[in-house]
Design a protein around this nucleic acid. Structure first.
Lengths: 340, 340
DNA sequence: TTGAAAGCGTTACCAT
DNA sequence: ATGGTAACGCTTTCAA
């Protein structure tokens, strides 16, 4: 009559092997679903596993397999914007879903300062992750360079400006911007401007390019106001500035829904009606869009899908599969509501 | 003349030991900052570490130390609400910051379905985390029970209804609700109602209780409308229903800012002015609050601080320190804006 | 103060 | 198909 231990130690491969009367090697083969195990052994082992309540020890497995089973999710944004930008949250969620389905852990790293950059660079160099997802890389981003030098499997959301052949998933910012601008033009507006944001990022620059494309010869540079961030505040300030310069605008393409929300408020403050006096369109189809007064006509950005897709890309690289050159572009339907 | 390897293997304690002319044990002692190492040895080892570029291997360390160096962050919410509720994002951010400062990884697990519950329960039982942070636990939550049974270090955001003495950090929902309701009453309103949400959660129930406290004998049950979620849509529908039943309300305490935003729109749709016809106050001081028209008077919830604090609580348990009984309550200043 | 050696729980190789 | 054995990189006794 032995005293049962208070808290049973976790069962190991060894325990399972003893219970099933086989060797540890065979147990390992069954656990990892390899071939060359007799049905007899497999059945016995499977029974033993449930009997002793075996759960593999990740640390041990990772140690011998020389991997970490973790993927870094790097966001290069100020903390506040991380929260304000609904896309990032959704991308994170999508990536997390795909990753945890594949039994990977997501290590979320937010780069906000110089110090963060160093920390993340060290983290990456330390081999704490098997791969990395990078959201909103900037031109000449130190993180991007570390990743490149390390030759660690990586995938970007949005095309990193520096790395020509890096795997990425994104949307056709330029094409979508062009399409929605044309749509806005189609409502009969003649003085259509843009609040362009984040021009140091590919998405920002591409949206402006698409806007220019749509306008063609009608393009008037004085009708575009440049603001630094995709934010409500920037949109509001930008619209006020534009109104000052060009009181006759009758249409606005805002670089994002958050910007558009700011535009709407600025317009209201200036006594302009929407869509009566001026039509406004946004970009993202985020929570801002439905919440706005009036609800925003905008470009739908499949944020969660983007997250899932980047994750899949990294996972696929980890499996050693070839990557599609030129990245993956997801669809961006236009959703037309009341603001234009 | 030996060929240099293309990609240098990662240096190990062994390499450092050889380089410094000491044993692996001593290297380990230096790396972990233990006593009983001669200055001579320490200096030599530190030099060797930078020379060979040594970075500790976490898997190996975790294996021998029987820990994972990961903390689970469990959110029991539908995916969509995870995004809509700005608090959760901030809490997550705060927790992530504290955790990564302590060299812990955060494993974010979202429980949305029955299936997720099982998956998370397995994950926890599998010993994949050293501790766990739980956000928005419900009454009779299976996850909570797993955590309890496993006796794994845990801390809650908000007081879990079932676990009397579980460490938690939160705010005084009842007191805050009472305070802001009194403030609203102080503006001279006589028919003050509430859109109460999420009554299956402590926060929801407590906010209603605080409201009731404030009203005292003036409390009129027909003026409270119950809605399931802290969401914009629920708030809007709830307000419409309440207006139907009690067209004479002149004040509303909405259970959250998102709810309040819905209330505001419902009021506008019903042709009521705010704060003219009816004064509205919310709860959270989230992005919704400033964005609303008019800007919301509300209770400030220190979301990021909550995240940091729960993380610290788990970390402290891991260090074996005593826990303050009764949990930690953070301050919730009232911010008074234009909606009342 | 230090070194030697014994694990931690796996997987992987090599015979059989 | 299976067992034995050697890593994987680290911490932690135990002697010295």
């Amino acid at each position: 009559m032995s005293t049962p231990p208070l808290r049973r130690k976790r069962a190991t491969v060894h325990d399972v092997a003893v219970e099933a009367g086989v060797s540890r090697g065979t147990v390992s083969r069954v656990v990892n679903g390899e071939r060359y195990v007799s049905d007899e052994a497999r059945v016995a082992i499977e029974a033993a596993i449930v009997k002793v309540g075996y759960v593999p020890n990740n640390a041990a497995r990772n140690l011998v397999m020389q991997r970490t089973q973790a993927i870094g999710f790097i966001v290069h944004e100020p903390h506040s914007l991380f929260l304000e930008d609904p896309n990032i949250g959704e991308i994170l969620l999508g990536a997390n879903t795909a990753l945890s389905d594949a039994d990977y852990q997501m290590a979320c790293l937010i780069v906000d300062s110089e110090r963060d950059t160093d920390r993340v660079a060290r983290y990456l160099s330390g081999g704490f992750v098997d791969g990395v997802i990078i959201v909103s890389a900037r031109q000449n981003d130190p993180i991007t360079r570390v990743v490149e030098r390390l030759e660690i499997p990586a995938a970007f959301v949005g095309h990193p400006p520096d790395l020509a052949r890096a795997p990425f998933v994104g949307i056709d910012n330029r094409g979508s911007a062009r399409t929605i601008t044309e749509r806005l033009l189609g409502t009969g507006r003649t003085r259509v401007g843009m609040i362009a944001a984040a021009l140091d990022r590919d998405s920002g620059a591409d949206r402006l390019a698409g806007f220019t494309d749509a306008l063609g010869s009608r393009f008037d540079p004085t009708l575009v106001e440049r603001v630094p961030l995709y934010s409500y505040a920037a949109g509001r300030a930008g619209m006020h500035a534009l109104l000052e310069r060009a009181p006759d605008v009758d249409g606005i393409f805002a670089a994002s829904d958050a910007v558009a929300a700011g535009v709407l408020d600025a317009l209201r403050e200036a006594g302009r009606s929407v869509p009566g006096d001026v039509g406004v369109v946004g970009f993202d189809d985020s929570a801002w869009a439905v919440r706005a007064q009036p609800a925003l006509s905008t470009v739908h950005q499949p944020a969660e899908g983007l997250g899932r897709a980047v994750a899949e890309s990294v996972l696929s690289q980890l499996r050693g599969e070839d990557q599609p050159v030129g990245g993956i572009l997801l669809e961006t339907p236009i959703v037309w509501r009341d603001s234009a």
